[in-house]
Amino acid sequence: MTEYKLVVVGAGGVGKSALTIQLIQNHFVDEYDPTIEDSYRKQVVIDGETCLLDILDTAGQEEYSAMRDQYMRTGEGFLCVFAINNTKSFEDIHHYREQIKRVKDSEDVPMVLVGNKCDLPSRTVDTKQAQDLARSYGIPFIETSAKTRQGVDDAFYTLVREIRKHKEKMSKDGKKKKKKSKTKCVIM
C-alpha cells in the first residue's frame, strides 16, 4: 500500500485542523484551538488504489514558523489553505509557496490551493482571484467548507493525484537520464 505524506499549511484560523478532522473523523470542530502540530493517518481508496494518507496539520501562528522547514522537508505534497473571508490569509499563500519551493529546492512541488469556509456569506476573496492565482502557479484550486464537508475529500484526493503525477514524471525523467548515460565512448 502506497503511503502519501501530505502537509496542510496556511495562516492561523483558516480551518486547516477543521478540514483535516472532517476528512479523518467526519465531524466539524467549530471551536478554535490553535494547533502546534498534529499528525493523522487514514486509509482510503483513490482511483481504485488503496493508500495510506499521513497528514500533518501544522501551526499557522507566526511564533511556530521555525518548525516549518522541518515538516516541509518531509512532506510530499501540500494543501495551501486560505479562508475566503480573510484576504490576508490569501496573500500569505505566496509566502508559504515560496518557502516550500526553497526548502524542497524545487520549482515543481505537488500543491493544491484550497479556499476554505465557502459556506460563509462574508467572502472577501473572489473565486476568480483564487483561480487566477492557482493557474499562475500551475496547481489545482478547490473551494471547501469544513463545516458542510463540501470539497473536503476532493481537496485531499486531488493532492494525492498531483503527487502521483509528480512521481510518474520524475521516474520518466530518471529513465531518460539513465538511457543517456548508457551511451559509451570508444577510443581507438
Score class of each variant (00 low, 15 high):
Gly60Ile: 00
Ile55Cys: 13
Phe90Ser: 14
Thr58Ala: 03
Arg73Gly: 10
Met111Thr: 04
Gly60Cys: 00
Pro121Met: 10
Ser65His: 07
Val81Trp: 01
Asp57Trp: 00
Asp154Trp: 05
Ala18Cys: 09
Val29Lys: 05
Leu19Thr: 11
Tyr71Ala: 15
Gln61Leu: 09
Pro34Asp: 00
Gln43Ile: 06
Tyr32Cys: 02
Glu37His: 02
Lys184Val: 14
Glu107Pro: 04
Arg135Pro: 04
Asn116Val: 14
Lys184Ala: 07
Arg73Met: 11
Asn116Gln: 15
Gly115Ser: 09
Gly12Leu: 05
Val81His: 12
Asp38Trp: 00
Leu56Met: 04
Ile100Trp: 04
Val44Thr: 11
Asp38Glu: 00
Lys88Ala: 14
Val112Gly: 01
Lys165Tyr: 10
Thr74Glu: 13
Val114Glu: 01
Leu56Ser: 01
Val14Glu: 13
Gly60Tyr: 00
Tyr40Val: 00
Ile93Thr: 08
Lys167Cys: 06
Leu23Asn: 15
Val9Thr: 12
Leu23Gln: 15
Tyr32Ser: 01
Gln43Asp: 09
Ala59Leu: 00
Glu162Gln: 05
Gly174Val: 06
Asp69Tyr: 11
Lys101Ser: 11
Gln22Glu: 06
Val81Arg: 01
Gly15Ile: 09
Lys184Thr: 03
Ser181Arg: 05
Pro121Thr: 09
Ser181Glu: 14
Val8His: 02
Thr158Ile: 09
Asn86Ala: 07
Asp126Tyr: 08
Phe28Asp: 00
Lys5Leu: 01
Tyr64Asn: 02
Thr58Val: 03
Lys101His: 07
Glu49Ser: 13
Met111Asp: 01
Lys178His: 09
Lys177Leu: 04
Met72Leu: 03
Tyr71Asp: 11
Asp154His: 06
Lys172Glu: 03
Arg68Leu: 03
Lys16Gly: 02
Leu79Ser: 01
Leu19Val: 08
Glu143Asp: 10
Thr124Tyr: 09
Val186Ala: 11
Arg68Asp: 04
Lys182Ile: 13
Met170Arg: 14
Asn26Tyr: 05
His27Val: 05
Ile55Tyr: 01
Gly75Tyr: 05
Leu6Asp: 03
Met188Ser: 10
Leu19Trp: 03
Ser17Cys: 01
Gly60Glu: 00
Lys182Trp: 03
Ile55His: 03
Leu23Asp: 03
Leu56Ala: 01
Ile84Val: 10
Cys80Gly: 06
Asp54Asn: 14
Phe78Ala: 01
Leu113Ala: 08
Asp108Trp: 04
Met170Gly: 07
Gln131Phe: 10
Ile21His: 02
Arg68Gln: 10
Thr58Trp: 00
Lys88Cys: 11
Gln43Tyr: 06
His166Leu: 07
Lys128Arg: 07
Met72Ile: 03
Val112Ser: 01
Gln22Asp: 13
Thr2Glu: 14
Leu53Ile: 15
Asp153Thr: 07
Lys180Trp: 03
Cys80Gln: 07
Val81Asn: 03
Val45Asp: 14
Gly75His: 07
Tyr157Cys: 11
Asp132Trp: 07
Pro110Tyr: 02
Lys169Phe: 14
Val7Thr: 07
Lys178Leu: 09
Asp154Lys: 06
Gln22Lys: 08
Val81Asp: 01
Ser122Trp: 07
Asp126Lys: 10
Thr20Trp: 00
Val125Thr: 09
Lys176Arg: 04
His27Pro: 00
Val9Arg: 08
Leu159Lys: 02
Cys118Trp: 07
Pro34Gly: 01
Thr58Met: 00
Ser136Arg: 07
Gly174Cys: 05
Ser136Thr: 08
Asp126Arg: 05
Val44Pro: 08
Lys177Glu: 10
Gln129Cys: 14
Ala155Gln: 12
Ala83Trp: 02
His27Asn: 09
Lys128Tyr: 06
Lys5His: 05
His95Leu: 11
Lys172Val: 04
Lys172Gly: 04
Cys118Ile: 10
Lys88Gly: 07
Val109Ser: 08
Leu6Gln: 04
Ala130Arg: 13
Glu76Ala: 07
Pro121Leu: 08
Tyr157Trp: 05
Lys42Phe: 04
Gln129Asn: 04
Asp30Ile: 07
Phe82Gly: 15
Asp54Val: 04
Ile93Phe: 12
Gly12Asp: 13
Lys165Glu: 05
Ala83Leu: 04
His27Lys: 14
His166Ile: 08
Gln129His: 04
Arg164Ile: 06
Arg164Val: 04
Leu52Arg: 15
Gly10Tyr: 01
Asp153Leu: 06
Val103Asp: 09
Asp92Gly: 08
Gly60Asp: 01
Gly48Met: 08
Lys167Gly: 05
Gly115Ala: 12
Gln70Lys: 06
Asp33Gln: 02
Ile142Pro: 07
Val125Arg: 08
Leu159Tyr: 02
Val112Asn: 00
Gly138Cys: 15
Asp57Asn: 00
Leu53Lys: 10
Tyr32His: 09
Arg68Ala: 07
Leu52Tyr: 13
Arg123Gln: 13
Asp69Ser: 08
Thr158Trp: 07
Asp154Met: 06
Asp108Val: 07
Gln131Asn: 10
Gly13Pro: 14
Leu79Ala: 08
Thr124Gly: 10
Asp33Asn: 02
Ser39Pro: 00
Thr50Trp: 05
Leu6Gly: 04
Thr74Met: 04
Asp173Ala: 15
Val44Asn: 15
Ala11Gly: 09
Asp30Arg: 13
Ala66Asp: 12
Thr74Ser: 10
Thr20Tyr: 00
Lys165Ile: 08
Val8Trp: 01
Pro110Ile: 03
Leu56Thr: 04
Tyr71His: 07
Leu53Met: 11
Val109Glu: 02
Lys101Ile: 06
Asp47Met: 11
Asp153Ser: 08
Thr50Arg: 11
Asp69Val: 03
Asn116Met: 15
Ser145Asp: 03
Thr2Trp: 11
Thr35Ile: 00
Phe141Gly: 13
Val29Ser: 11
Ala83Gly: 12
Gln22Ile: 08
Lys5Asp: 04
Gln22Gly: 04
Tyr40Gln: 00
Phe156Val: 08
Glu62Asn: 07
Cys118Tyr: 09
Arg73Asp: 10
Asp126Thr: 08
Val14Leu: 12
Asn26Phe: 07
Met170Phe: 11
Glu62Met: 04
Gly15Leu: 02
Asn86Leu: 03
Val7Trp: 09
Val29Trp: 05
Phe78His: 04
Leu159Asn: 02
Glu37Pro: 02
Thr58Asp: 00
Leu23Ile: 11
Glu3Met: 15
Tyr71Ile: 03
Ser65Arg: 08
Met111Gln: 03
Val160Lys: 14
Arg149Val: 09
Gln25Leu: 04
Asp153Val: 07
Asp153Tyr: 05
Val14Lys: 13
Val45Gln: 15
Ala155Glu: 05
Lys178Trp: 07
Ala11Cys: 13
Ala66Tyr: 12
Arg97Gly: 10
Thr35Gly: 00
Thr2Ser: 10
Asp38Ala: 00
Leu159Ala: 04
Thr20Gly: 01
Ser145Phe: 07
Leu52Asp: 09
Thr124Leu: 07
Lys178Thr: 11
Ile187Ala: 14
Met72Lys: 08
Val186Tyr: 10
Glu76Met: 10
Asp153Gly: 07
Gly15Phe: 01
Lys177Asp: 12
His95Tyr: 07
Gly75Leu: 02
Val112Gln: 09
Phe82Ile: 12
Thr158Leu: 09
Lys101Glu: 15
Lys180Gly: 09
Glu37Leu: 04
Glu107Leu: 06
Val112Lys: 02
Lys172Arg: 03
His94Leu: 14
Leu23Ala: 15
Leu23Arg: 14
Gly48Leu: 06
Val7Ala: 10
Glu98Ser: 04
Ala83Phe: 03
Glu62His: 06
Leu159Glu: 03
Thr58Glu: 05
Leu19Gln: 14
Tyr4Cys: 12
Arg161Pro: 01
Leu23Trp: 12
Lys88Leu: 14
Lys165Asp: 03
Gln22Val: 02
Leu79Glu: 05
Val8Cys: 06
Gln22Pro: 00
Ile93Asn: 05
Cys185Trp: 05
Gly75Ser: 05
Lys178Arg: 09
Val7Gln: 12
Asp47Ala: 09
Glu62Gly: 04
Gly15Ala: 01
Asp69Glu: 13
Gln22Ala: 08
Asp57Val: 00
Val186Met: 09
Ile46Trp: 08
Gln22Tyr: 04
Tyr137Glu: 13
Ser39Phe: 09
Tyr40Glu: 00
Val112Tyr: 11
Lys42Trp: 05
Arg123Val: 09
Glu63Phe: 03
Glu31Asp: 12
Asp119His: 03
Thr127Pro: 06
Tyr71Pro: 15
Phe82Gln: 04
Lys178Tyr: 08
Phe78Arg: 01
Gln131Arg: 09
Lys128Asn: 06
Lys180Val: 15
Asp132Ser: 05
Thr183Gln: 14
Val45Met: 14
Asp69Gly: 09
Glu162Tyr: 13
Ser106Phe: 10
Val45Asn: 14
Val109Arg: 05
Val45Gly: 12
